[in-house]
Simulated scan of single mutants.
Amino acid sequence: MSSTIVGASVRTRVRIPLTFADGYSTTAEAITFDGLADGREHLAMILGDPDLGAVPLVRLHSECLTGDVFGSARCDCGPQLREAVERITDTGGILLYLRQEGRDIGLYNKLDAYALQDSGLDTYQANTELGFDEDARDYTAAAQMLVALGVDRVDLLTNNPDKVRQLTGLGITVRDTLPTGVHATPSNLGYLRAKAEHTGHTIRLAG
Rank of each mutant, 00 (worst) to 15 (best):
residue 2 S to A: 04
residue 5 I to E: 07
residue 5 I to S: 07
residue 6 V to C: 04
residue 7 G to K: 15
residue 9 S to D: 13
residue 10 V to M: 03
residue 11 R to L: 12
residue 13 R to V: 09
residue 13 R to I: 01
residue 17 P to F: 05
residue 21 A to M: 03
residue 23 G to H: 07
residue 32 T to Q: 02
residue 35 G to Y: 03
residue 37 A to G: 05
residue 37 A to T: 07
residue 39 G to P: 07
residue 42 H to Y: 04
residue 58 V to M: 03
residue 61 H to C: 08
residue 62 S to Y: 06
residue 63 E to D: 15
residue 64 C to D: 05
residue 64 C to M: 07
residue 74 R to C: 04
residue 78 G to T: 03
residue 79 P to W: 11
residue 79 P to H: 11
residue 83 E to W: 09
residue 86 E to C: 04
residue 91 T to L: 13
residue 93 G to A: 08
residue 93 G to S: 10
residue 95 L to T: 08
residue 99 R to Q: 15
residue 102 G to C: 05
residue 107 L to S: 05
residue 110 K to R: 13
residue 111 L to F: 13
residue 112 D to W: 04
residue 116 L to R: 11
residue 116 L to N: 12
residue 119 S to K: 14
residue 129 E to W: 03
residue 132 F to C: 10
residue 132 F to S: 12
residue 137 R to G: 10
residue 138 D to T: 06
residue 140 T to P: 01
residue 142 A to N: 10
residue 143 A to S: 06
residue 146 L to Y: 08
residue 149 L to D: 10
residue 150 G to C: 08
residue 154 V to Y: 01
residue 158 T to M: 09
residue 159 N to R: 04
residue 161 P to S: 10
residue 162 D to P: 00
residue 163 K to M: 06
residue 167 L to E: 05
residue 170 L to P: 05
residue 174 V to Q: 13
residue 180 T to L: 13
residue 186 P to F: 13
residue 189 L to Y: 11
residue 194 A to Y: 06
residue 199 T to V: 15
residue 200 G to Y: 07
residue 203 I to L: 15
residue 205 L to F: 13
residue 205 L to V: 12
residue 206 A to R: 12
residue 207 G to K: 13
residue 207 G to P: 11
